[in-house]
Simulated assay, not measured.
Amino acid sequence: MEIYFLGTNAGIPTVQRNVTSVVLRLLEERRSFWMFDCGEGTQHQILRSPLRLGKLEKLFITHLHGDHLFGLPGLLSSRGYQGGTAPLSVYGPPGLKAYLEISLSVSQSRIPYKLEVVEHEGGLLFEDEHFKVESALLEHRIDSYGYRVTEKDRPGSLNIELLKGYGLKPGPLYGVLKSGRDVTTEQGITIAAADVLSEPKRGRIVTVLGDTRPCGNSIPLAREADLLIHEATFAHELAKMAREYHHSTTVQAAEIAKEANARQLILTHFSSRYSSPEELGPLLDEARAIFPDTQLAEEFRLFPVERSRGN
């Protein structure tokens, strides 16, 4: 599980940075990746990355401002031309379906795969045996949503040496024990799963917050997250401007991470006024003064989602 940024700028692209798009790589877990937002030019960014559109499984739109979805029609069309045949689900606020229907029909774009568009107003959006995705409304000029991706706990590891001592060879009974159920061997020996199975591996949590002022729903979405991605459009000296434009500052993002007891914070969605690493450096310093485990998003850089210690 890794985070990969395709765009980190707010509002408009610059020479240095593209507009918003975040990827959650799940190549080991699902052999796919999920995307959060798809600003204009995202498919060009993908061409410069190791990603392949055919592996895109789910796409989540935080809100319907152009810098977060103008790249979507082109990306959906290109996915078909690039051999993408697997189904794709796109989630977002009401209005997303109409936007896509008009864009794709007027341009006569051909989508040769099953495209599911799910409009939502928060709540549980997806769940299977491995993951669940929840969403809640944030506070922006239009409806904007945050997303919380929870990886479910995985069974612990079997003590192979101990099982050999019982005379049990690899086979179907290993799977039964792995599921937490006791087994009885052909020799009549009962093996308790608890005796041969280590503690479950705690699932990881990734939270992606769309454009927002600090608000009540940010905390439960980010609670105990292993990785929180939060917008930091402005340095804190521009807190008044941030509030007027319904955005957050570096300090506010760090305060959310601290109150939610997140483990790591990555700041993104930077105003184009911060065009160089030297100008971004003070933003990082501001956040780290409150929440030390903070990093700045960088395009085309992988950020591993680490498990908690002991898991």
Rank of each mutant, 00 (worst) to 15 (best):
G210H: 00
I205V: 15
R204L: 07
K258R: 14
S275Q: 12
I229L: 15
A254W: 03
R223A: 14
V206F: 12
I256N: 01
V251S: 06
R273K: 13
V206E: 01
A239F: 02
L227F: 14
D293S: 11
E279Q: 12
P214C: 05
V251I: 10
E286R: 02
L197M: 11
A253P: 02
K258A: 13
R223K: 15
C215W: 01
G203V: 02
Q252W: 01
L238R: 08
L284R: 13
Q252S: 12
L228N: 04
P282I: 05
H269N: 09
T233L: 12
E255Y: 00
I290W: 00
R204D: 04
V208E: 03
I290E: 06
K240S: 06
T268A: 11
R223Q: 15
T207V: 04
G216S: 15
P277D: 14
A225Q: 02
S272N: 08
L267D: 04
Q252Y: 08
L265Q: 01
H236N: 15
T250N: 13
R288F: 02
S272F: 05
R263W: 09
R288E: 10
P200S: 10
M241W: 12
T268D: 10
R288D: 03
H246P: 04
R202T: 13
T250D: 07
M241D: 03
I256Q: 03
H269Y: 03
F234I: 03
V208Q: 07
L265C: 06
G216K: 13
I205Y: 01
I229P: 03
L265N: 05
C215M: 08
E231D: 08
I205A: 02
S248G: 07
G210Q: 09
P282H: 07
L284H: 06
A254E: 06
V206D: 08
F291E: 02
P282Y: 10
P277Q: 12
D293H: 12
P292T: 08
G210Y: 00
Y245E: 15
A287S: 05
A287V: 03
H236S: 09
E278C: 06
L265W: 05
P220T: 06
S272A: 13
H246I: 01
